[in-house]
Amino acid sequence: MTGTLRKVLVLAVLSALLAAVAVVSVVRAADRAGERAKARPGGPAAQSGAVGLEQRGRLLFRNLAWGPGRDTIASVPLAAPEGERTTAPQDCLRFHAAAGTGVCLRRAGGVVPRYEALVLDAALRPVRSFDVPGTPTRARVSPSGRLLAWTVFVSGDSYAGGTFSTRTAVYDTRSGLLVPNLEDFAVSEGGRRRQAADHNIWGVTFAADDNRFYATLASAGRTHLVEGDLRGRRLQVLRENAECPSLSPDGTRIAFKKRVAGLPADAPWRLYVLDLGTATETALAEERSVDDQALWFDDGTLLYGLPGDFGADLWSVPATGAGSPHLLVRSAVSPAVLPP
């Protein structure tokens, strides 16, 4: 065997050994990463299965736990929200449901980022879709399941800085009417017409009559709580410094986030509840900044998202101002309550 051939063989053997070592290292690293992921807090177990809006006594949400079911709709019992979750194949960035109807805002695929709003039936099957002109941020279904609303960022991606633009649409599942932009509604304040080129509207919450609703209107760097008349295509300004309203099941109170002086510019909000009868505001026990549209878990408790290990976690707090916040579901956002 010549010296040259011997060198070639040695190099070939060394290359094979190095390749084998590299493969083993990669496999072992993947195994260790998998074990760490399994043990990491905030990654609850999930299994695929039947999830539907006809089920009772369940809490549905967008699943943020790492794994094949991430970003899909998940379901847990109301009585055991930290138990193993069941995931459906429907993926959503924002989700809400009521009375057998759901709304899902999701990526629509393609080389250029595109998003769509899906109307879901009780089995979470899409029955209609709409292209939306920006990044999903809010979604709501009326108590009857008839009306759907969604908000997207047309420019910007945060409510904190004030330099953003939104588009909010409302869809009537019974008539098939789509209102593509609530900014087209007439706005009044104190009995006088209010006009401005910089109106932004977001965060719709519906009353039980499927006509009246509440939302946020922003203009000139200030936010306002407005009451809307869907059939009359009107908005009435009620008060200043109120964002992302959420009407209580009995229709008497509105939860909202309020900017509080002295807090950081990127985390300025505290949760409050407004009594519509007395106009009394109550600060809630959650002292962290909540950049979310809270949801009423029941007549006395609110749900909301806060940053967590895997994106966000769902917390609860009494609506009375008493008590303290409670971590309800890890790795979850965009909840919907299916009452017993």
Score class of each variant (00 low, 15 high):
residue 90 Q to T: 15
residue 262 G to L: 00
residue 35 E to C: 02
residue 116 E to D: 12
residue 118 L to P: 00
residue 257 K to P: 00
residue 65 A to S: 13
residue 328 L to S: 01
residue 260 V to R: 09
residue 226 V to C: 12
residue 87 T to F: 08
residue 54 E to T: 15
residue 84 E to Q: 15
residue 129 S to F: 02
residue 259 R to G: 03
residue 43 G to K: 14
residue 173 T to Q: 02
residue 266 D to P: 01
residue 163 T to Q: 13
residue 231 R to Q: 13
residue 198 D to T: 01
residue 102 G to E: 10
residue 74 A to K: 01
residue 9 L to N: 07
residue 144 S to I: 00
residue 91 D to M: 14
residue 205 T to V: 10
residue 20 A to S: 14
residue 174 R to I: 02
residue 217 L to C: 09
residue 121 D to G: 03
residue 337 V to L: 01
residue 41 P to D: 07
residue 122 A to F: 03
residue 293 Q to G: 07
residue 238 L to N: 04
residue 220 A to F: 13
residue 29 A to I: 13
residue 142 S to G: 09
residue 174 R to K: 12
residue 121 D to F: 03
residue 143 P to F: 13
residue 19 A to T: 15
residue 202 W to S: 11
residue 165 S to E: 11
residue 316 S to I: 02
residue 70 R to Y: 09
residue 77 P to C: 02
residue 230 L to N: 07
residue 240 E to K: 06
residue 196 A to M: 02
residue 307 P to F: 04
residue 167 R to C: 07
residue 107 R to P: 09
residue 273 V to L: 04
residue 303 L to K: 01
residue 12 A to H: 06
residue 242 A to Y: 04
residue 286 E to K: 01
residue 125 R to D: 12
residue 189 E to A: 14
residue 12 A to Y: 06
residue 254 I to H: 02
residue 218 A to N: 02
residue 236 Q to M: 07
residue 20 A to D: 11
residue 150 W to V: 05
residue 101 T to I: 05
residue 8 V to H: 12
residue 213 F to A: 10
residue 285 A to C: 05
residue 270 R to K: 13
residue 208 A to Q: 13
residue 202 W to R: 04
residue 170 V to K: 02
residue 105 L to A: 06
residue 23 V to F: 13
residue 339 P to G: 03
residue 274 L to W: 14
residue 107 R to K: 12
residue 123 A to M: 07
residue 123 A to E: 12
residue 156 G to T: 06
residue 65 A to P: 04
residue 144 S to C: 11
residue 210 D to E: 13
residue 206 F to T: 00
residue 303 L to S: 01
residue 114 R to H: 09
residue 96 H to N: 15
residue 336 A to Y: 11
residue 28 R to S: 13
residue 211 N to F: 15
residue 284 L to D: 00
residue 316 S to W: 05
residue 78 L to S: 05
residue 224 H to I: 04
residue 80 A to W: 10
residue 99 A to F: 10
residue 185 F to C: 05
residue 256 F to Q: 01
residue 321 G to N: 03
residue 333 V to C: 05
residue 96 H to C: 04
residue 264 P to A: 11
residue 298 D to R: 08
residue 334 S to A: 11
residue 253 R to Q: 14
residue 142 S to P: 03
residue 178 L to S: 02
residue 308 G to W: 04
residue 261 A to F: 07
residue 33 A to K: 09
residue 237 V to K: 10
residue 34 G to R: 12
residue 221 G to Q: 13
